[in-house]
């Protein structure tokens, strides 16, 4: 166990180093730097520009900057986010919990809904219920999240005023509300962005779960369960699902990076001040340290999610061999 953890830790470290290096190199090719928009005008004297760039070490050759930056990063120093006038650590500490709340809610809701849809489809295999739900999940897989987000925002938000169109909480004196009212307010603001992401998750989960369930329904022990006199719903829930859910959980772990990718746009659209929004703004501002930190956090999230989902998949599948990374 300790050796497996150590190995996984080393893998993670290598992945992070590769990702951080790639991001650094790519950012060098992007035009501009953190001061391009603020200073590169005709009315700013060249000496001022040079002074600011020298203060942040931007006048050094890229190789030297890379070495200095790598050493600082290895020490755990994420640097200073010039665009936010805040240490990167503080920016991440603010934004990360919000993203975890959004993505976590979407994952849980989407997974539960997807499994239920798949159970219903398998129960009514090849009847109209199966076909209608199958068409819906196909649309859910095919339509990009940002489009769904815009549609939801237009109708549920702007036209019918059911949900707020943006933000994480009501403005004004909301800060003085009692705790439970603030929580309800948060959930109300969470509904649209989390709902859009959950729909995307549910569609993918449902399609995979349905295929896995149909495969298991051909097994001999399903016939045994029916011969016992179990109802079809019990056969599905008690015998088919436990044998079909493991691979779907493992798959969810692999799909998480793409979910985070979708979350970046959805956060941006709904003005949800999480990591996606942070990364988006940091990219526009060429805030190198913040970009690297945001990408690293996303990488770590993906690795952690994979470890956790693998562990769960192993736990629900006691016969599966352990030890594979």
């Amino acid at each position: 166990m300790a050796r497996r953890l150590l190995r996984r830790f080393l893998h993670t470290a290598v992945i992070c180093a590769v990702v951080a290096t790639s991001v650094f190199v790519l950012m060098q090719f992007a035009p501009g730097d953190p001061f391009a928009t603020a200073l590169d005008g005709p009315d700013v004297p060249p000496s001022v520009r040079a002074e600011w760039r020298a203060r942040y070490g931007l006048d050094l050759p890229p190789t030297e900057r890379f070495v200095r930056w790598g050493i600082a990063l290895a020490r755990g120093q994420l640097g200073y986010a010039a665009s936010r006038r805040q240490p990167v650590v503080d920016v991440v500490a603010d934004a990360l919990p919000r993203t975890l709340l959004l993505v976590g809610t979407a994952l849980l809701l989407g997974f539960a809904a997807g499994v239920w849809i798949a159970l219903l489809q398998t129960r009514h295999h090849r009847r109209w219920q199966d076909r209608v739900l199958g068409a819906c999940t196909l649309v859910g897989v095919a339509v990009p999240e940002f489009l769904l987000a815009l549609v939801a925002m237009t109708w549920l938000g702007a036209r019918w005023h059911i949900f707020p169109v943006a933000g994480i909480g009501s403005l004004g004196d909301a800060a003085g509300w009692p705790l439970w009212e603030r929580m309800i307010d948060l959930a109300w603001h969470l509904a649209l962005p989390a709902g859009v992401l959950a729909l995307a998750v549910a569609s993918r989960v449902a399609r995979h779960q349905r295929a896995a369930l149909l495969g298991v329904m051909r097994e001999d022990f399903i016939r045994t369960a029916r011969a016992k006199g179990l109802g079809e719903w019990d056969v599905l829930r008690r015998h088919a699902l436990p044998n079909a859910i493991g691979p779907v959980i493992a798959l969810l772990g692999l799909a998480l990076p793409s979910l985070v990718g979708g979350a970046v746009l959805v956060e941006r659209i709904f003005g949800w001040p999480g990591m996606g929004q942070t990364l988006f703004d940091a990219l526009l501002a060429r805030d190198y340290p913040l970009v690297v930190a945001a990408v690293l956090v996303a990488t770590l999230l993906a690795v952690v999610a994979r470890t956790v989902t693998d562990a769960i998949a192993n736990a629900v599948a006691p016969r599966r061999a352990t030890g594979a990374m």
């Binding site: 097994e219 022990f221 045994t224 369960a225 006691p318």
Partner: peptide, 16 residues
């Protein structure tokens, strides 16, 4: 009416 199936391994739910 009850039935005993052949292949006792595959006739039992592996996770139960």
């Amino acid at each position: 009416v009850a039935m005993v199936f052949q292949e006792p391994l595959s006739a039992l739910n592996p996770r139960m």
